[in-house]
Design a protein around this nucleic acid. Structure first.
Lengths: 254, 254
DNA sequence: CGGTTGCGTTGCAACACTTGCAACGGTCGT
DNA sequence: ACGACCGTTGCAAGTGTTGCAACGCAACCG
């Protein structure tokens, strides 16, 4: 909607690929070097980009700090965290918390497995939306029309033979998940990793987040992991209860 | 330098304080509502802001994902991580990795203490720059004039009676730190928490990052923590060596 | 129930701001 | 020492941005 801002913001994902010099940024944006320079300067003033010694631009520290604040403002996260820790203490596996936001599912918290074999994932990383157990729960709860729209637009990469192959299969899966109130990912993302997930609901019953327990086959079989389902659901329900109980609206005085 | 972009970017820190509606954003920016609306729309298209059901704007998911990528691009981090983990396995305490960037010191990695009592800190959170041990190391290595400039501009909040009180005291401390090649924070930030830190240097000898071990008094006394100094320094040196050894330039084909 | 207030939204005309150009200055490599 | 390359700056042209005023909509209240 605003050309100038649009261009400036487009620089950031570009720099996320790695440091780039002025010429490169200008080329990728399709604008004159001087234009790119001025945009970069503005971004720099705000700390969104950083200029390293070799004069190339990198993403800046303020971006990281800001993202941090963004996450801390999510109250689900704060409420859920102690529950996630306790669950981890009980079962020992990796515990994740995720939310949905405009075509993306994002991990917003994580407690690491206590077993030596750990799965790779990072807070802030967009989730493999077509296969992750938490993603299924979050998408399953979207209003009918929105859900269809999102599902149609997705890609369905075959991470493994058991990955969700296409939109139709995914819709069927989502229907099942919505009905049963929990979800799994049995080797759909990484051959040897399974997850069980349960939804966290707000006072109105809508799913506001989802949590999961993940473990590799070498530690527990899928069947063994499934025996944790009641525990996971109880934990999710506990968080739901606490979350709907009060609405701790952080008031910022004008 | 670019008014439009400048305004747009100013919206983000503003939203970091908490969700805000259109009117509020316009007021804070000092522009007409329609202008603010268009800026917000552009930010929205790029996923930097999110519109919640009550129509108010929040920081968006893409911001978090971008910050994530920004951190993964820092090669010190990647190299250091396994060393941090090993150090944590050896001593059991919380291990931090931090870098300096334009007047801020930022934690970019962390391995949690294995003791039940943990200190609060978060990756991405700007560090208490006047007292943290890692901050001292990073600032101590700045070129004379830049160091003075930064130190003068800082605030010196008295978190505890042992916090650095003012610029002069800080400069003295930095001189000491530079000379001895390591730093401590003994209850300068939180009364009961102590840290020992060591610098990580690039091939040219400049400090590129700093790492620290932190533990509360209730677990180990300051003296006991200091006995870990050799171990911390060895770890830092190991990282330095590996970091200077190769320059794994991530090439992105145009 | 109708009027009022408050909010987000849109089309438009004026003009401020952005844009690309051309030229400069520095650094590196030959 | 020369040329090539990259970042930087002043300027004139014009495009994109801005504030305004008017609209639609919901909530609130008399």
């Amino acid at each position: 909607m605003s050309q100038t801002v649009d261009r400036a913001l487009s620089i950031l994902p570009l720099l996320a690929e790695g440091p780039a010099d002025l010429g490169r940024v200008a080329d990728r944006l399709g604008v004159h070097k001087s234009t790119a320079l001025r945009l970069l300067r503005t971004l720099h003033e705000h700390g969104f980009v950083y200029r390293q010694e070799d004069q190339r631009y990198r993403l800046g520290a303020r971006l990281i700090a800001l993202a941090q604040e963004a996450m801390e403002n999510l109250d689900v996260r704060e409420i859920a965290h102690p529950h996630l820790v306790r669950l981890n203490e009980q079962c020992g596996h990796t515990v994740h918390l995720a939310v949905y936001e405009e075509n993306e599912v994002l991990y917003i918290d994580k407690v690491e497995s206590r077993y030596p074999v750990r799965m790779y994932s990072r807070i802030g990383k967009p989730v493999a939306i077509t296969v992750a157990a938490v993603a299924k729960l979050l998408l399953a709860d979207l209003p009918e029309n929105e859900r269809r729209a999102v599902v149609e637009k997705l890609d369905y990469p075959m991470y493994t033979p058991r990955s969700t192959p296409n939109a139709d299969g995914f819709l069927t899966e989502l229907a099942k998940v919505r009905e049963q109130g929990w979800a799994t990912d049995l080797g759909g993302h990484e051959e040897s990793i399974n997850c069980v997930a349960a939804p966290i609901r707000g006072a109105d019953g809508r799913v506001v987040a989802a949590m999961s327990v993940s473990a590799p086959n070498v530690v527990v079989t899928a069947d063994e992991l499934l025996t944790l389902l009641p525990l996971v659901r109880r934990t999710a329900d506990a968080i739901s209860g606490e979350y709907s109980g009060r609405t701790p609206v952080k008031e910022v005085t004008a």
